[in-house]
């Protein structure tokens, strides 16, 4: 059997997922033994035309990280789908939109205006905006269309597997690679490189009573290192977040932000966490409850930090 053909592509994302591939450490040598990387523009000099030339389904596994923000991302998603046997949504951006997905709370015009005209440091006296086509001296230039909406990979093409995380932790990336290389593939559509429960399953903090009388922003308290952060009033998304990361943030005394997406049986991570949090606010008086909940200053940013594009509503009203 020949070496596996692997591809990595970076769409609308920060690039952290590409770095997390390197976090597998020395295992990268094992990867080099069993696989050839046939496309990884971030790491080496590959061109789109290289992919176009490949026969269909000749890439064994393609790790596509990043959300679909514009035409180029969509084009490459479709192209890589055609050329790959297995297409993996790699990382939170591809799985659920992640931080780029927060742009769905705005419209295209809002974003372009802000970036090209309104920020304090913009110096654009003529109000030049990006155009799809523009004639210059040398000829006609084209820019890929910037969509009005961020979509996930699965909302764009058919996806085989999902590796969640922002970024997926190194050990899990290695486990996922091993799974995919093993030949014993899980059912299509599975989440791999992660757990099958909520983060609380991995978290070692002590639990007493899930009752809170005040919600704190992270900077307002130094939490007790032994006790559940949610019980201390911090907005920990752990109960509504898929396990697999080893509770790294919690171990560093920071509440989970939810980057591994919802647990297996949940449609909408933000709605579920909103429900759970509201349910444990331990006051009966309406005024008091309102006061406590007012400390959730930005519900979307808290509950849907990573998952707007994959939530039930997917975007703010156009």
């Amino acid at each position: 059997m020949g070496k596996l053909k692997l591809a990595f592509y970076w769409a609308a994302s920060c690039g952290g997922c590409e770095i997390s591939v390197l976090e597998i450490g020395e295992h990268i040598l094992e990867v080099a033994e069993i696989a050839d990387i046939v496309f990884w523009p971030a790491a080496m000099d590959f061109k789109y035309s290289d992919v176009e030339k490949m026969p269909d389904r000749s890439i064994d596994v393609c790790f596509y990280n990043g959300a679909v923000r514009m035409l180029e991302n969509e084009h490459m998603a479709k192209l890589l789908r055609a050329k790959s046997k297995i297409l993996v949504a790699f990382g939170s951006c591809a799985c659920e939109g992640c931080i780029p997905g927060l742009a769905n709370l705005k419209r295209r015009e809002d974003i372009l205006n802000r970036v090209y005209k309104e920020t304090p440091s913009t110096d654009n006296p003529d109000g030049v905006m990006p155009l799809l086509k523009v004639k210059v001296l040398e000829g006609e230039l084209e820019l890929p269309e910037f969509y009005n909406q961020v979509n996930t990979l699965a909302q764009t093409v058919d996806v085989d597997y999902f590796i969640p995380g922002c970024p997926p932790v190194g050990e899990q990336v290695w486990k996922a690679i091993q799974t995919l290389a093993s030949g014993k593939l899980p059912p299509k559509g599975s989440f791999i490189g992660c757990g099958e429960k909520a983060l609380c399953d991995e978290c070692e903090l002590k639990r007493a009573e899930k009752k809170i009388k005040k919600i704190y922003r992270n900077y307002e308290v130094i939490p007790d290192r032994e006790q559940c952060l949610l019980e201390q009033g911090l907005l920990c998304m752990g109960p509504a977040t898929r396990s697999g990361c080893g509770a790294q943030c919690v171990k560093a005394n920071m509440p989970c932000r939810g980057c591994y997406g919802p647990p297996p049986n949940v449609d909408d991570q933000g709605a579920k966490m909103l429900s759970a949090l509201s349910s444990i606010v331990d006051v009966k008086d309406e005024g008091e409850a309102k006061k406590i909940l007012a400390d959730v200053v930005d519900p979307v940013g808290t509950f849907y930090m990573f998952g707007v594009a994959n939530s039930l509503l997917r975007r703010a009203k156009k």
């Binding site: 709370l105 309406e286 909940l293 959730v296 009203k317 156009k318």
Partner: peptide
């Protein structure tokens, strides 16, 4: 309030509603 057949259900529902109202506004 105070009459919930299951004692506390409407308190929880009310709390969820308060946050939901804020959330849907953020979604336009």
């Amino acid at each position: 309030i105070g009459d919930c057949h299951y004692l506390e259900g409407n308190y929880k529902a009310r709390n969820r509603y308060m946050l939901l109202k804020k959330l849907i506004e953020q979604f336009g």
